[in-house]
Design a protein around this nucleic acid. Structure first.
Lengths: 146, 146
DNA sequence: TTCCTTGCAAACGATTTGCATTGGA
DNA sequence: TCCAATGCAAATCGTTTGCAAGGAA
């Protein structure tokens, strides 16, 4: 999605909830849009530069998550990583490096996605669990670490 | 797996690495074997009772993880949950409740498992990422929370 | 002016570590 | 006996919160 379009969509979403789309929030959205996978508060801070205090960053993340603009991800120990919500990026899955912990987004071909969706349907039909979403985590070693 | 068999397998594995299979370690393995999903240190502590200090529990978890007897899981914010490694339990996936955070194991029918395996193969073939395992997280609402 | 937002510092909760003690082979 | 394992207390790390200052409508 073009950055201008992205920001317009986010702004509309935030305005609908009477939340301002401030510079700091815009910076987080921009940075996540440029990333190819979820990023932690520390990673965002480093990339944004302009030494924003971490407490402000965390507050920004809380606000954006509550507005469903970003989604948290917890594939690695001890810290949360965030990415733009799927209504902004499209549905995707994750490659998780078991060495360095970085996470990369992947899209899977439609045929496979249908199979996974069918699997989730099947599970839902045979249990009392109400499924709303799914995420396939492929664990392994990234190029850097191998 | 029968408890006796389980403990024998774990003991063999630990002995091979010159690690003792102590009462505390045995208690963690027993408790995880009785659980239907990954459990946190606090949950294990509560279930084991016998007020074991958390620091000892964490050390036990570290040792068992290093010996590949247990595997950490991070689907929810702020804390790690552990489960017996798949060579002891068999391959499975997870239902994650987005309300209360609890995680439950599920086995998926072989046909679907083959499809997922094929998907992972395909991804591996088209990227420089070396896949070693995968985990499908189905997010939704558990019976309690719905 | 009136709230929302931000910055700073202190507080928190999960986890880790140093060190002295205990216990099993 | 001797080193691994444990308990306790203090330290660490990511994250959250109270409160006062800054900023946009």
């Amino acid at each position: 999605m073009a950055p201008a379009t992205l920001h317009r969509q986010v702004e509309t979403r935030l305005n609908a909830k009477d939340i301002r789309y401030t510079t700091g929030r815009r910076a987080v959205v921009t940075t996540l849009a440029e990333s190819d996978g979820p990023r932690s508060a520390a990673e965002l801070s480093a990339k944004i530069g302009a030494n924003v205090p971490l407490s402000s960053l965390y507050r920004t993340l809380t606000v954006l998550e509550a507005a469903d603009v970003i989604t948290p991800h917890f594939a690695t120990k001890g810290l949360a990583r965030y990415e733009l919500a799927e209504w902004l990026t499209g549905h995707h899955h994750h490659l998780v490096c078991i060495e360095c912990g970085t996470v990369e987004d992947i899209e899977v071909p439609p045929l496979y996605e249908q199979q996974v969706a069918a699997l989730v349907e099947t599970i839902a039909a045979t249990s009392s669990f109400t499924a709303s979403n799914h995420d396939l985590e492929i664990e392994g070693t990234c190029e850097q670490c191998s």
